[in-house]
Design a protein around this nucleic acid. Structure first.
Length: 385
DNA sequence: GCACAGGAGGGCCACTCCTT
DNA sequence: AAGGAGTGGCCCTCCTGTGC
């Protein structure tokens, strides 16, 4: 195998410029270099003029047998989620998912919505005349500006808001993406301890069966970037009961047909690298992993390995089905039976692009050394304990 | 440089409806 | 009756911006 190519890139966008693109779609126009689809190490020049490793990419890093293992074990584990933040992209008000709902307080990639009670209020208020609505506004002591007072819609929403018909929670576009493996304590909704995530526990067999695939991701990381690997392994070994066996990872994010908008990964070990691979079925083009600040993009395909600094802004270019791709994909035996009416982004497609991002969650190291065993083992489909 | 306020983030599960 | 799938609510903590 030829020596991997080395590329050194400047920052084409300032930190502020790239940050302002958070949550936005990034396309191939941000590429300043031809797409990387060969073995390659990319370094960037930081603000002090130092060469810093940005990514290492290696083609065909998995045997077909391991890819089959990964596919079989994990193809169904990319559960739809409304909480992926900026990476889920701007709220697409025309999408199947949002057209079914009444959304409010929409801002960039997150939005509120009318609760079922709010929807009911809306139906009832629609029947009123503007005069009746204005009276209601006065009765309820709602402040209203000179413009809104003349618009039925505005008045209706003001009344619903006043009567608590807005969701308290904000959500993002629904995409097929969720964490598998271990998670630190969460004290917001429920008081959950450090644990194996519930979805991992209810799919425990599949999770276990796929581990040889995950361990190969680990091995690639170890081989390519030994310094960072050892740092991360040492950190992971502080909580051996909360790491994926035979790896330096706590957690894997599994995505299906998920084109991410611009984001930085949150929650992972600051000194670590994100380790990424893809398993695909059917045909598509694009979906490059792009770092727009540095003008580079990588075409990560089935069985390729990418280690990258996920604390830099990154995204995916559009995933395209050409006419030929579509004809081919139409003839594939279906392996999923998703209901496209639900509107989870990407699940209407016949091709499959599974991505695996393996990392160590930063706060795992704050977890206690003793954890109730029930949070760390297989579960039936009932309550968490 | 600090205190404070306000907003954003977010995994799990109860509930409903439907299928077997 | 038991399950799967879809839907939407739970509310604390962290982060960021602002004003002193």
């Amino acid at each position: 195998m030829p020596r991997p190519r080395k590329i050194i890139v400047p920052k084409y966008l300032s930190d502020d410029q790239v940050a302002s693109l958070e949550g936005k779609w990034i396309d191939e126009s941000y590429m300043k270099h031809p797409v990387i689809d060969y073995n390659c190490d990319v370094y960037y020049i930081d603000d002090n003029g130092n060469e810093v490793l940005l990514l290492k990419f290696r083609k065909n890093s998995f045997t077909n047998q391991l890819l089959r293992t990964g596919w079989k074990s994990y193809k169904d584990l990319a559960k739809p989620s409304r909480g992926r933040g900026a990476s889920a992209g701007p709220i697409d008000t025309t999408s199947i998912y949002w057209k079914k709902r009444n959304i409010v307080n929409t801002n960039k990639w997150s939005t509120g919505y009318l609760t079922p009670t709010g929807n009911k209020m809306k139906d009832d208020l629609m029947d009123l005349t503007i005069i009746q609505l204005q009276d209601k506004i006065k009765d309820l002591n709602i402040k209203v500006n000179d413009i809104d007072i003349n618009y039925k819609d505005s008045l209706i929403y003001l009344i619903i808001k006043k009567q608590n018909g807005f969701s308290k929670m904000k959500v993002n576009n629904q995409v097929a993406s969720n964490p598998i493996g271990y998670y630190e304590a969460t004290k917001n909704f429920a008081d959950l301890p450090c644990r194996l995530t519930h979805f991992t526990r209810t799919n425990y067999q599949k999770y276990k069966e796929g581990l040889p695939f995950i361990q190969q991701i680990n091995n690639m990381f170890s081989k390519l970037i030994p310094d960072s690997y050892n740092k991360q392994l040492e950190r992971a070994n502080q909580k051996p009961h909360l790491k994926i066996p035979g790896t330096c990872f706590s957690t894997i994010t599994i995505n299906r047909n998920f084109r991410t908008a611009l984001h930085k990964d949150a929650g992972d070990f600051k000194g670590g690298f994100g380790n990424l691979t893809v398993i695909e079925r059917g045909k598509y083009h694009g979906g490059y992993t792009i770092l727009p600040q540095f003008g580079v993009a990588v075409d990560v395909r089935s069985g390729d390995f990418l280690a990258m600094d996920v604390h830099q802004w990154h995204s995916n270019t559009p995933i395209i089905e050409t006419k030929e791709d579509r004809l081919y994909n139409e003839k594939l035996d279906p392996v999923y039976n998703d209901n496209p009416e639900v509107g989870t982004v990407g699940l209407d497609k016949k091709y499959t692009r599974l991505t695996f991002v393996c990392y160590l969650r930063e706060k795992i190291s704050n977890c206690p050394n003793q954890i109730d065993k029930r949070y760390l083992e297989a579960s039936d489909h009932k309550k968490i304990v």
